[in-house]
Each structure stands twice: as C-alpha cells, then as structure tokens.
C-alpha cells in the first residue's frame, strides 16, 4: 500500500467517523443547554432537564417496562440461540440450510413486517397486547444476533476436548456443563449484552405490540411531537447513549476474551 494513498483513505475514514458521530456529539451539548429551543447559540449550563427527567412518572414506568422486556428477551434469545448455534456447528443434518435460514430471517426482514404479522396473529389468537407480547417479538429479532455471536464461539471449539471428557467418564450433559459451557461463556455474555442493547432500543415492534404500555422508545417517539419535551429527551438520550456504549464495550470485551480463550486469531467485529 502506497503511503500517500493510505493517508488519503485515513483522512476520508476520519471524516466518515465524524459524520457517524455528529448527532451523538450534539446530544450532551443540548442536554446541558439552558434553553427550551434546540438551537445555537448555547444559553448556558443547566442540569434541569435531568431533574425533570428523573421526576417524570411515565418515563419511570417506561424505563421499568423496557428493562423488564430487555432482560427477558435477551435471556430467552440467548437460550434459544445456544441450541441453534450448538446444533448448526456440531451436527450436519438434513434441512439445516432452510432451518437456519428461517431462524436468521428476521435479520433481513423489515421490522414492520415482523411487527404487523405478529400483531395479526396475536389478535387472532385472542392474546391481549402487553409487555409480554413485546417480549415475544423482541426475542424473535434478537435471536439471529445471538446465534451469530454464539456460532463463532461454538465453531472454534476443539471437538477432541469434548471427546476427552467422554473418555474420562463424563455424561453428555456434564461434559457440556464442565467443558463446553466455560469455553463459550464469553460468547454467551456477549450475546446477552448485544440482545439487551437491541431490545432496549427497538421501536417498531414495541409500537405495534405494547398495547397502551409505554416502553422507552415508544415514550420518546410520543414526546418528539411536543417541543417543550425535547430538552428532556436530549437528557434521556445522553444517558441511553452512555449506557449503550458501556454495554457494547462490555460485550466487545467478552467477545475478545472468548476469542483469546479458544485460541483463535481475532478478526474483529460483532457480525
């Protein structure tokens, strides 16, 4: 690689990163700006918007709902993901292609299609819309991400470790628990954190399936229409971005530890 060409690409990539981060950088600026209108010039420092946010009862309810949904959906998606990842990396069975295709389909399907079709079925089956129905939907869309992360973890396992455990008298289950599970644990934690982040941020499915229960994204969406709520939403957004960054950094940390533990070379990235 030509040095000059390389630095040209580097400058381009840095500008591109600036474009990617531009909206996120503005968030904290307006969250602490002492003005009800989101515009320059800035009007001085305030923490009022954070206080207003903390005192808002609907927001608290939305946060609780979102946390409950995200925890449930990430645990369910990861558990289901473990089965799929283990089966697809360990066994070569007939119909594997179509089966995995169906499980991974939500990754490319527009979310509105998932939301609309689930809504129709749930209403036809007489299931009332609630937090529970959002959990069902979020589990479905988090599952492919969990499978993708866990497949990497499972595929790097050395089969002879498992066989050694059988030779030493372990049963199938105890070999899984004592040998395989510890090796893929970083992958599991990473899948949990990733699914949690996705669920916490998901809007369309919650919008269709939550009934009259607020979640954080549907609450934010409902407030975007009211100019006087916007500074508070900026404060909320700042906290959410901070939380996502912490969760993603943890997920990346565990993913790398998993890579190191099974002795692969790191190729990087979640996907």
């Amino acid at each position: 690689m030509n040095r000059l060409q390389g630095s040209g690409l580097r400058v381009y990539t840095l500008i591109y990163l600036a474009f990617l981060y531009a909206p996120i950088v503005l968030l904290p600026i307006f969250a602490f700006n002492n003005a009800t209108v989101i515009a320059f010039p800035l009007q001085g420092f305030t923490t009022n918007w954070f206080v207003q946010m903390a005192e808002n009862p609907t927001l608290r309810q939305a946060l609780l709902n979102s946390l409950l949904i995200a925890v449930s959906a990430s645990v369910l998606a990861t558990c289901l993901g473990i089965f799929a990842a283990r089966a697809s990396t360990r066994f070569d069975f007939r119909g594997k292609g179509p089966v995995m295709g169906l499980i991974m389909l939500p990754l490319v399907l527009p979310e509105i299609i998932v939301a609309v079709s689930l809504l129709v079925v749930l209403l036809a089956a007489g299931v009332g819309l609630s937090i529970f129905t959002v959990i069902l939907g979020h589990t479905l869309i988090c599952m492919p991400y969990a499978v993708a992360i866990l497949s990497t973890a499972f595929s790097s396992l050395d089969k002879s470790l498992e066989e050694a455990a059988y030779d030493l008298g372990e049963t199938k289950w105890s070999a899984f628990r004592l040998v395989i599970l510890p090796l893929v644990m970083p992958g599991i934690v990473s899948a949990l954190l990733m699914s949690f982040t996705i669920s916490l941020d998901e809007f369309i499915i919650a919008f269709f399936l939550a009934g009259n229960q607020p979640t954080l994204p549907t609450y934010i969406f409902s407030q975007l229409r009211f100019p006087k709520s916007i500074p508070m939403i900026m404060a909320l957004g700042t906290l959410l971005v901070l939380m996502s960054i912490v969760l993603l950094t943890l997920a990346e940390h565990f993913r790398r530890r998993g890579v190191a533990r099974t002795g692969q070379t790191d190729t990087g990235g979640f996907i």
Binding site: I198, G237, L240, L248
Partner: peptide, 9 residues
C-alpha cells in the same frame, strides 16, 4: 457504536 445507540434519538 453509533449504530447501536438510540435509533429514534
């Protein structure tokens, strides 16, 4: 990172 942070906001 920016991709995973609050889509609506």
């Amino acid at each position: 990172i920016p991709f995973w942070t609050s889509y609506l906001v």
